[in-house]
Design a protein around this nucleic acid. Sequence first.
DNA 1: CTTGAAAAGAACTGCCT
DNA 2: AGGCAGTTCTTTTCAAG
Lengths: 152, 152
Amino acid sequence: MIELDTLDRKILRALVEDATQNASALGRALGLSQPATWRRIKRLRDAGVIAGQRLDLDREALGFGVVVFLGIKLATKGRVSLEDFERAVSAIPEVQTVEHILGVYDYRLRIVARDIADFERVLRRRIMTLPGVGDVEANVLLSEERRPGPIG
Amino acid sequence: MIELDTLDRKILRALVEDATQNASALGRALGLSQPATWRRIKRLRDAGVIAGQRLDLDREALGFGVVVFLGIKLATKGRVSLEDFERAVSAIPEVQTVEHILGVYDYRLRIVARDIADFERVLRRRIMTLPGVGDVEANVLLSEERRPGPIG
DNA sequence: CTTGAAAAGAACTGCCT
DNA sequence: AGGCAGTTCTTTTCAAG
């Protein structure tokens, strides 16, 4: 595990928010030179702290205004059941996230749909027909705030 | 709302997975020239389809191995209650995501902690003391798969 | 750590099919 | 719409303080 100082943490926080910033602009904001900032970023990347860089899409602009979280309990929970379920879920394009969890539910799915009618179609024809599905709990996303989370 | 063809969708899918690819490498994979690819990306950016670009951190490498999802019901649900709750939640660094939802619960929080003992500390001292908290449901994350979701 | 400079690569432009 | 060729800008690496 790598040691991070305050500057490293500031760099990570800034880049988690917006990874388009370059080393010179970021360095300017932190009182560092461009090469110094760049070396720190490279060090963090090499240490595996930085896992990747992803594009953030505006689902609304793409015509997908509805996000629903589904909590799912499986009726049968053998090893085969989990694998069957996960394989089947992976084939549904409207599923954006599959979270295998321990607690009240077995899985949590993030479903993206054009509108409520579209969501109903996905729910009836895709989700309810998944192998082993038991109880299903639904929560419609109203708004969402993402934060950097704890660093170091 | 912008019209997307197959190539645009392929570009978005590729960049959602890995935004470090440049226009020439991406174009090569799709049978397009660098400028053609670049122009499409710029068009998508200008149209607002691309909301941003974020760094993905490896929480394990940072020493935060535990992720817990909390479903929270508020005891009192006036406008002021929601705002008080959201303000207080925003001050907790271990909270990575705040989702305001409609359904069985009022909020869903993604909590990141070093280990279970650390999570207990956050739960007792930070979460349970939030203004207006009623029922709390917890699910521990075992594994997670992120997918591009539907595009166009 | 810094500055400065050079090499490499990516982004951007204009013109043509 | 796409490709090609060229220009500009940024990133990356290195030398030296």
